[in-house]
Simulated assay, not measured.
Amino acid sequence: MAEVDTGELDAAVEAFAERLRALSESRLRRGAGAAGLEVARALVRGAHRLDGPFGASRVMPDAGVWVVGDQVAVAGHDLARAIGTTSDEEAARRELAEALELLRRA
Rank of each mutant, 00 (worst) to 15 (best):
G46E: 11
V72G: 08
F54A: 15
R81S: 09
A47K: 13
E25L: 15
V44H: 08
G31L: 05
A73T: 01
V67S: 07
A42I: 03
H48C: 10
A35W: 02
L37K: 03
F54H: 15
A34R: 15
R41E: 02
R58K: 15
A80D: 08
A22I: 01
R45W: 09
V44M: 09
G36E: 11
M60G: 01
A47F: 05
A63S: 10
P53Y: 11
Q71M: 13
E25A: 10
A42P: 02
R27Q: 13
G33N: 07
V39F: 06
R45V: 12
A40P: 14
R19T: 04
E25C: 04
A22P: 01
G55Y: 02
P61Q: 05
A63C: 03
R45Y: 09
L28N: 00
A40Y: 07
A63H: 01
A35K: 10
Q71A: 09
E38S: 12
R19G: 07
D78R: 11
A73M: 04
V59Y: 10
R41F: 08
L50R: 03
W66R: 15
R27F: 09
V74I: 11
G52Y: 05
A22K: 04
R81M: 00
Q71N: 02
A42E: 14
V68Q: 05
R58C: 06
G46D: 11
R58N: 05
R81H: 14
G52K: 13
F54K: 13
M60K: 05
S24P: 02
G76S: 09
V59H: 09
A56K: 12
M60C: 11
R29M: 13
D62F: 04
A47T: 13
H48F: 06
R41K: 11
R58G: 05
G69H: 14
R27N: 10
G69E: 08
A63M: 00
L28F: 02
A63Q: 05
E38W: 03
